[in-house]
Design a protein around this nucleic acid. Structure first.
Lengths: 351, 351
DNA sequence: TTGAAAGCGCTAACAT
DNA sequence: ATGTTAGCGCTTTCAA
């Protein structure tokens, strides 16, 4: 039973050694479980550890070993349910593999990301997992490359390992689903919070599916705040896309949050989903499954993504994986719910 | 410009000293910004630091200082949007005060919490912030008390500082809102993911408001999975509460997630909200504000909660706050949305 | 103002 | 099988 002495400093390995009447190496050997410590001594050491409430100082250990078991996790916005869930899964898998996680939140600001990375590096993290990355400048690369391995999950950089869903294929599935339902005027809505690389891949998948069906892609870049959309470098209100002469019968949003926002706007405008407008999202966040949201979406296997990223990173750390960046892609799945339906052609003609 | 030498070990303070032609103490003085280093030497040191790409090893520093600037954060479930947002705010405020955060996710399991705490302690965290706490045993207390200060945010323990919303008052407001609308059969739904202490306080607020209005409290403990509810130690399907002879006209849920689940069930059963059933939540998570959810709820000021917790913890760390546990309470606010309305008395009578 | 030296708590040779 | 010793990279007296 530990002496609840709150004023004294935490006991060290030396305190244990003294109490057990052995050298500190022996204590160290016991702690690290190295073979070849006499049973009697081992017992005495264990007893001393228990009596003193001794807890090894990981900082000291990792200082001499010159490597930590801390993993840096760069996360964009924990307020975003997709990111939060990814963070959770990453923490879970890291923890299971004996690593601790040090989070650094960037709010998609590059300066925040850069100072965050510096902090992680000062703690000599063993590796860095990017759940978001603003690849605006080469700042991150200059800080990290050749120092610690890093893996980009659901985001991308050409100088590190990448684990992500098959965005292009996912977008194709989503788009084809809408085409198969009979839609022809199908727009792609790019949400600004989606990573550039992912957005591009999804756009490619969308455009290819459209062209293969003889349809022309229409891409909108969404600014949520004033419910405005940018198309061909021109701003216009979202409502003009949902109604009016430029209106579409279906929208594929680059993520669920954008899609849900779209449902909100549609509701306010009296545009009925799915009768007047079909909406498909991307990610399959928890919210999407609520009966009131009921969003058709492309599901990302977050658990699998986290698993793969940790497998990749630990492989690098253990030297099992060497050489240039690898890229792992996991399968996505279309989850059909109630936000998509056959277009109401009659209405179109009448309008 | 740093030499991108990927094979060499990171430069140490000694490398910098050699290159600058000074002693390592001088380098240390420059790094820590202590006054009284000759301008010329300072410049040489700075140049050497830059040339080498030197980055101080925080582990080494904190080993000699015998204290870290790492804060442990015990979080229940990052998949829960309320927890995720709290985690985000806590990270933000910690970071702003120069602390790093080490997360440990517990999934409401005590063993996970306990091993998590041990890990944090091995890293010699300066303090621990609990965003969730299973106070089942005294395990956590035995590990932490007298070792590092800890603050319980939105949860509770009698041996540490507590920062939380005024749960009782919040529950009173919610209940009174329903009473004022004319409801009489108002139930309290306890969601299992809400911390015990918070749940109790909310129940008290609810019960008091009910009794003051001459109404009798009805408390249900909810098991989401099989849509079952426990009342007076007897299990029954939720639908029996929404319809049937035991039905109520309003429900106050101990959190938003439970309330949203309730909306789902109501939708499935064809029970109209708010006409047939008014629902009030607690927390005001992002989802609650979606037009399709539109939940009346008691808002927790998460940013303020995080701010206060960090203020409290850092005050302890700097010795500005000493003595027994303090308890800080922040004001809550009722956000009236579309899930509550005057009860449809006609319907009641007819049913 | 600067440098030398003694640790912080631990691991990992190396002796014994 | 156990103890001795030399660091890990840094801060912090203490002298000079």
């Amino acid at each position: 039973m530990p002496t609840g002495n709150s004023t004294s400093r935490p006991p060290t390995i030396l305190d244990v050694a003294h109490r057990a009447g052995v050298s500190k190496s022996t204590v160290s050997n016991v702690i690290r479980g190295v073979h070849g410590v006499a049973a009697a001594k081992r017992a005495r050491v264990l007893a001393a550890i228990d009596a003193l409430g001794y807890r090894p100082n990981v900082l000291a250990r990792q200082l001499v070993q010159r490597r930590t078991t801390i993993l840096g996790v760069v996360v964009g916005d924990l307020g975003n349910p997709f990111h939060a869930e990814m963070a959770k899964q990453v923490e879970r898998h890291a923890s299971a593999r004996g690593y601790r996680t040090m989070f650094c939140s960037t709010q998609a600001e590059e300066t925040a990301e850069l100072t965050g990375i510096q902090n992680l590096l000062e703690y000599r993290v063993a590796g860095i997992i990017f759940l978001a990355h603003t690849g605006a400048s080469s700042g991150a690369r200059e800080l990290i490359e050749g120092v610690v391995p890093s893996v980009f999950v659901t985001c991308s950089a050409d100088w590190g390992d990448v684990v992500s869903g098959d965005d292009q294929r996912g977008a194709e599935m989503a788009t084809r689903h809408l085409i198969d339902l009979g839609h022809q005027r199908i727009a792609y809505f790019a949400d600004p919070t989606v990573e550039d690389a992912a957005d591009r891949a999804r756009q490619v998948g969308y455009s290819q599916a459209m062209r293969q069906a003889g349809l022309s892609p229409i891409v909108y870049y969404w600014r949520h705040a004033p419910d405005t959309v940018v198309h061909n470098n021109r701003e216009m209100p979202v409502q003009d896309v949902l109604r009016g002469p430029r209106s579409v019968t279906a929208i594929f949003s680059s993520n669920d949050l954008g899609a849900i926002e779209l449902l909100d706007v549609a509701d306010r405008l009296g545009v009925n989903v799915p009768d007047d407008l079909s909406v498909v999202g991307f990610d399959d966040v928890l919210m999407a499954g609520l009966s009131r949201i009921n969003l058709t979406t492309v599901a990302q296997p977050q658990e699998e993504l986290a698993r793969q990223s940790l497998a990749t990173l630990t492989a690098r750390l253990q030297g099992e994986l060497t050489g240039g960046p690898v890229r792992r892609t996991v399968e996505l799945e279309l989850v059909v719910r109630g936000s998509t339906a056959v277009p109401r052609v009659v209405h179109r003609k009448a309008g």
